[in-house]
Simulated assay, not measured.
Amino acid sequence: MSTLKIAIQKNGRLSEKSLQLLKECGIKLSNGERTLKATSSNFPIEILFLRDDDIPQYVEQGVADIGILGENEVWEKDKNVSVTTKLGFANCRLSLAVPKEVNYTGPAYFNQTKIATSYPLILQQFLDKNNIEAEIETISGSVEIAPGIGLADAIFDIVSTGSTLQMNGLKEVETVTRSEAVLISNINLNNEKQDILNQLLFRIQSVKNASENKYILLNAPNDSIEKISGILPGMKSPTVLPLKEAGWSSIHSVINEDDFWDNIDRLKTLGAEGILIVNVEKMIL
């Protein structure tokens, strides 16, 4: 049987999140987590630990069949790969930042400036779209120090919380695009490897569904069951079980976590009591 080779970042938070996702998908690694590669003892997959900016090229060339990395690297490297699914973690934005004392009035500010970045392709597309003529200074790592040492007037970089910008006397002024972790694949997978990928995608989707939903149990008066069922439709319909106390039932359902917080007051108004919220480990629709 074929083995599907998956490339993930060799260290950092994206690597940790990727390994956690595989673990939640029930995939056990037999050779540790920080060697050059690791194999699974219970799923036909081999993991290659690589630099994230090398992953698109290796997937295009077939050295790896699939890879997990940030969308920003996929866009920047512009390789002939397929974005198979978004994964919902490692969210960030790619933004322009300037020294905090600058009186920023809009994108035209960047005309005739020098901008430091590790993402020259994405930046150039933004500049072209906005008819801005600027010099791009391509550097790798520590982009945020460029204005402070006189290398550039502004920077274009990944921003998560913005704290790094603040520590370097910068402020975010333009969000160019937003990025998250994605799974990419080689466009020429054979049928056997595609079947393995489909199995993996099924597991990933089950984990994603579970992370976005909660199992809810509550007690409610029988005359409120119909209205509560409208709030908690579940995957098909809620489960309603009679309680020993006459006129009351226990209602079990699944609800999106955001929807729950939006509807908690309505549930309480309808007489819901003893509300329990339980994490869902896997959710297959």
Rank of each mutant, 00 (worst) to 15 (best):
S2N: 15
S18G: 01
S249A: 09
I8P: 00
Q199L: 12
P107A: 14
S82E: 14
N213L: 13
I158C: 08
I27W: 00
N131Q: 15
G274T: 13
F89K: 10
D65G: 12
S211M: 06
S41C: 03
D153V: 14
E172C: 09
A90W: 15
N168E: 12
L201E: 11
C92P: 00
I66N: 01
D65I: 15
A134Q: 07
V59P: 04
H252S: 12
E73Y: 12
S179R: 06
N91I: 02
I228D: 01
Q57G: 05
K86H: 15
S160K: 09
A220P: 01
F49D: 12
A272V: 11
L267H: 06
G150D: 10
D52F: 05
F89V: 08
L197R: 00
D65E: 11
I228Q: 01
L19D: 00
I136F: 03
I145A: 12
P120E: 10
E273I: 14
I136D: 02
T117K: 07
I184Q: 03
A7G: 09
F110N: 13
E180A: 10
I264Y: 11
T3Y: 11
A210S: 13
Q20K: 15
S229F: 03
S82M: 12
L96A: 15
I231R: 04
V98I: 09
L36N: 04
I204T: 08
K214V: 04
S229H: 04
D223G: 05
G247V: 02
L96D: 11
L87V: 10
I6Y: 02
N256H: 06
V173F: 08
S185W: 00
K23I: 02
R51P: 02
D52L: 05
C92T: 10
T138I: 13
F156Y: 11
A146H: 01
A7T: 05
I27Y: 02
G67V: 09
H252M: 13
T269Y: 14
T161Y: 06
R203P: 00
T177Y: 10
F126P: 04
L183Y: 11
S40G: 03
I145S: 12
D259G: 11
I204M: 04
E172Q: 09
S40Q: 07
I187A: 10
L48S: 15
N186T: 02
D53Y: 09
S41P: 03
T117S: 14
M1E: 15
V143A: 09
E192I: 08
L50I: 06
S211H: 13
V74L: 05
R203Q: 10
N91K: 13
A134G: 05
N131I: 14
Q112E: 15
